[in-house]
């Protein structure tokens, strides 16, 4: 059973100071260009914490980095040996994680443990504490209501914060969260009934605050029924610039490639790097055969994977409604555009 506490905003920085000593602390911060990104907090005193804007990237780059060394190798006349390499990040607390990004982490947990246990992701994940922040005011491109994982989150966070103005209502959802509350009780007080009611009021207001109506359910149904016209894929494929920006900012896109990076004539590293199913070469085989027609079927697969195959497999889409692909796509072939086209009779 979850418990509710109050954290006054005056106590936030002192709490983060304590947390920063116990964990590597990652939080959304505004950089000198004015961009809000999750970044490691070097100093709680000088951090430019930004809880007012959506971080431009999810936590994917932290838990599943764009590029990582998975092995080192030596190869010479005497032999060929590969040695696994694991980055060993210290216990990390991610602060201010929105419900979309929490849902994406729960999805990655499944992807990286169901068929094969992926040691790099899971190694980081096991060392992770998540402090969520409910969205009182959805951002302009958000549609997590339509993907049913926001704007308030009930799953995934160790501690979940709701901004009540001069204070946060703090819900401890998991044992790690309870540990934090009981370890630093001086920052927390018991939540009053009125404060819990206030949170519910904010939740109702947030649900009404979405600026976009993206009919994800309808698109899912039409895909399941095979009702999406080929012309929709044609139209999207023509406009897709094959930049993979959508896949890179997507918190649930986890396709990757593995390449060798020689460091000398007799040694090198094996890297795992992000890849994207929309790239023309993603499925092309040595010798030239490509089972996926790049200009037609690649973007189709991206949307079918998120809105059909994952619904069949996991019971919910793997789009979490964060809206980041809407921000980044300059061809106008983001998932909201697809949902719109697919929903047309």
């Amino acid at each position: 059973m979850s418990s509710s506490h109050i954290l006054k905003k005056d106590h936030l920085i002192p709490l983060l100071r304590k947390l920063g000593k116990a964990y590597r602390l990652v939080a959304p911060m505004q950089n000198r260009h004015g961009d809000t990104l999750f970044a490691e907090v070097a100093s709680v005193e000088t951090m430019a914490l930004d809880l007012d804007h959506q971080p431009q990237e999810s936590l994917k780059p932290f838990l599943f980095p764009q590029q990582e060394v998975i092995a080192a190798y030596e190869a010479d006349q005497a032999g060929y040996a590969l040695h696994p390499r694991y980055a060993a990040p210290p216990p990390t607390l991610y602060f201010g994680v929105r419900s979309c990004d929490l849902a994406a982490i729960l999805y990655m947990d499944v992807i990286f443990s169901q068929r094969t246990r992926e040691p790099h992701y899971l190694g980081r994940r096991h060392n992770t504490v998540l402090v969520g922040l409910n969205c009182n005011a959805p951002f302009p491109n958000c549609f997590c209501d339509a993907t049913k994982n926001g704007p308030f989150s009930e799953l995934g966070a160790d501690l979940q914060l709701t901004d009540l103005g001069d204070r946060f209502l703090v819900t401890a959802g998991r044992a790690q969260g309870e540990t934090i509350v009981s370890r630093w009780p001086q920052f927390f007080s018991a939540a009053e009934e009125a404060e819990i009611k206030k949170q519910y009021q904010l939740y109702l207001e947030a649900r009404g605050g979405f600026q976009r109506q993206v009919h994800v359910d309808l698109a899912i149904r039409r895909l399941a029924e095979g009702m999406v016209d080929e012309a929709v894929w044609q139209q999207l494929s023509l406009r897709c610039q094959d930049c993979a920006g959508c896949a890179y900012v997507c918190p649930t896109c986890t396709c990757f490639t593995i390449v060798d990076q020689p460091r000398s004539a007799t040694s090198g590293e094996r890297l795992r790097c992000w890849d994207a199913c929309t790239f023309a070469g993603f499925t092309r085989m040595a010798g030239g055969h490509n089972p996926v027609e790049p200009k037609k079927a690649a973007i189709k697969h991206r949307f079918l994977h998120k809105l059909k195959y994952d619904v069949e497999k996991h019971g919910r889409p793997s789009c979490v409604g964060c809206g980041r692909c809407l921000d980044i796509c300059f061809g106008g072939t983001d998932i909201a555009r697809f949902v719109e086209l697919a929903s047309e009779e």
Binding site: T116, C255, F256, F282, T283
Partner: peptide, 12 residues
């Protein structure tokens, strides 16, 4: 098919 991981993760 083109494959990178062989174990159901990379999706190529």
């Amino acid at each position: 098919r083109h494959m990178k991981c062989g174990v159901g993760l990379c999706r190529h």
